[in-house]
């Protein structure tokens, strides 16, 4: 029925904060370590001495099923592929930064320090996948399999299975299953996602839908209502020719009088 969709599963309980994924992303995408498309969310130190904990999770673009950024992008630089990957065309982007406000997951990053600045964002290492490599760089590098890559269904099933098998290890929440209408990146975690600093949302519909309602339905309605309304009112209120003509002459007379004054 639907095309094959890629997916990620990121397991915070497996992350050891080694940041090899950041290095891999930097090397693969030829970006500085400051501009990697993956970064670490963490809880800080939690718990009571001596039972202290520090949870971390790598975090990158969620690749929403109905991405708000794609709907918002002024020039269509952000697009969604059939396989669910949200791509970014850096030859089109004008750097307006609307996607940064549109994204409910606070993902797009702007190159503030550059003279000609663009957005940076994870694209599933699409060029690697197109070359026939099995995984994006971060997933291939992760030493503890905290980042796993596969089909969306597989990853979602795996997330549920892990929670089911070890309910003590995870909170019962697959982040990304319903958030913003569902995504292609799933997270499971030993602590609630707020604690990891994830943007929490209760909305299970993408804000892209509301956006389309106003831009693709609302605006054309307003436009046609105004155009027709104005034409109608103009014709309805148009004074009878005689009176109008009288006004016009008066108007011209005024003008001539003024011209003479000058």
């Amino acid at each position: 029925m639907t095309a094959h969709k890629y997916g990620f599963l990121i397991d915070a309980s497996r992350c050891i904060d080694c940041r090899a994924c950041l290095v891999a992303c930097s090397a693969e995408n030829n970006v500085s370590m400051k501009h990697t498309r993956i970064w670490i969310k963490d809880t800080g130190i939690v718990g009571e001495f001596p039972d202290l904990k520090h949870y971390t999770a790598p975090y990158h673009c969620m690749h929403c099923t109905d991405p708000a950024c794609v709907s918002a992008c002024t020039v269509g630089a952000l697009q969604q592929n059939e396989d669910g990957i949200v791509t970014y065309d850096n030859d089109r982007c004008i750097g307006c930064r609307y996607c940064m406000y549109a994204c409910p997951f606070e993902v797009p990053y702007f190159e503030w320090d550059k003279q000609f600045a663009l957005i940076t964002k994870c694209d599933f290492c699409i060029s690697r996948l197109e070359e026939g490599q099995a995984e994006p760089a971060c997933a291939a590098t992760c030493p503890t399999d905290a980042i796993q890559f596969g089909s969306r269904e597989e990853m979602l099933a795996l997330a549920r299975e892990r929670i089911k098998n070890e309910p003590g290890r995870y909170v019962d929440h697959v982040f990304g299953e319903h958030e913003n209408g569902g995504t292609s990146t799933f997270f499971i975690s030993p602590v609630p996602f707020e604690q990891l600093g994830f943007p929490t949302t209760e909305r299970t519909e993408s804000s892209a839908r509301f956006n389309r309602e106003v831009t693709e339905i609302g605006t054309p309605i307003i436009a046609s209502a105004v155009a027709l309304g104005m034409t109608g009112i103009y014709l309805a209120l148009k004074p009878k020719t005689g009176k109008h003509a009288a006004e016009k002459t008066e108007h011209t007379e005024e003008k001539t009088a003024q011209a003479q004054e000058e």
Binding site: G76, C96, F110, E111, L118, E216
Partner: peptide, 19 residues
Amino acid sequence: GRWDRFWHFLVYPNLSSAL
């Protein structure tokens, strides 16, 4: 960010974008 491409909105339409 890329002011040199300000004209891109003329040639790369995204009809669902409010901007």
